[in-house]
Amino acid sequence: MALEIIESCVNCWACAPLCPNQAIYEAAPPHFPHFLIDADKCTECVGDFADAQCVAICPIEGAILDELGVEMNPPGSLTGIPPERWAAAQAEIAAR
């Protein structure tokens, strides 16, 4: 049972100090600059907090996955921007 931080992490440092297991670390190149989770240490905060702390503070949708690869903060859940609206805006910008 462990969470995973993927490359969309923006390296904001918010999660690292919150981890009760010190499982979050700054990746070395080539993964730098972003953070990673040591799967051996991660407990998903069970027993410490009601919510996984990294998931609860991460500002980036989709940057943290559970062990099944499911996005813990799915698109739209943090920004409030409906995913289709985001896609439409990106398409419009790309077409400029």
Partner: peptide
Amino acid sequence: YPWIFWKNKR
């Protein structure tokens, strides 16, 4: 403000 992180919760 869509959210805040407060007392270990979003």
